[in-house]
């Protein structure tokens, strides 16, 4: 204990089992087969990825499933450098907001294939509109990490 006044350490540990439901299950099953599934809204025509159960704008059911492109353009990104408790991985690691071709929203994932020791070069490579492509993990567990990351396409 590092504090100079009386404290109690209260570490909360709780177990969870979150239900994926039909839509997430099917989406992650797709990833296992190296497919990225989206759903299209019959009302507004927008394509959402990851697949959604219902349209976030129209509130209507989405059952028009499609296998969307694994390439897209980068809209924004960040390189995480600072550590915090319970972090998903050891920094540095990068995250990107990616518009997959043919979709109407951004997909979030890790960015890879970039040399972070040369930030100037990295920034150049990842400027707005940069093209990226999904790289797949060898081992798959039907979860979001089945995609290893998105990597810049050589231009």
């Amino acid at each position: 204990m590092t504090k100079e006044y009386g404290t109690i350490v209260n570490t909360v540990v709780l177990p969870y089992r979150w239900a994926l439901g039909q839509t997430w299950t099917r989406f992650f099953d797709g990833l296992k087969e190296e497919k990225i599934y989206g759903t299209r809204c019959g009302t507004c025509g927008k394509v959402f990825v990851p697949a959604k159960t219902f349209c976030p704008d129209c509130y209507s059911d989405l059952d028009d499933w499609m296998d969307v492109s694994q390439e897209g353009t980068l809209k924004s990104w960040t390189l995480v450098r600072k550590s915090h408790f319970g972090q998903v991985r050891q920094p540095p690691y990068a995250l990107g907001l990616i518009r997959l071709d043919g979709t109407d929203c951004e997909f979030i994932h890790f960015l890879g294939g970039v040399d972070w020791s040369d930030m100037q070069n990295a920034r150049e490579k990842l400027k707005a509109g940069a093209r990226v492509k999904a790289a797949w993990s060898k081992e798959k567990h039907a979860d979001i990490h089945d995609i290893s990351c998105f990597e810049p396409l050589k231009s």
Binding site: W24, T78, V88, L95, H109
Partner: peptide
């Protein structure tokens, strides 16, 4: 399922926003 395993939090979201 999606954003948490990718480590999205208020700071990373803000970083996306700042760059944009």
């Amino acid at each position: 399922f999606y954003m948490r395993p990718l480590g999205i939090n208020e700071t990373t979201a803000a970083a996306f926003q700042m760059r944009e």
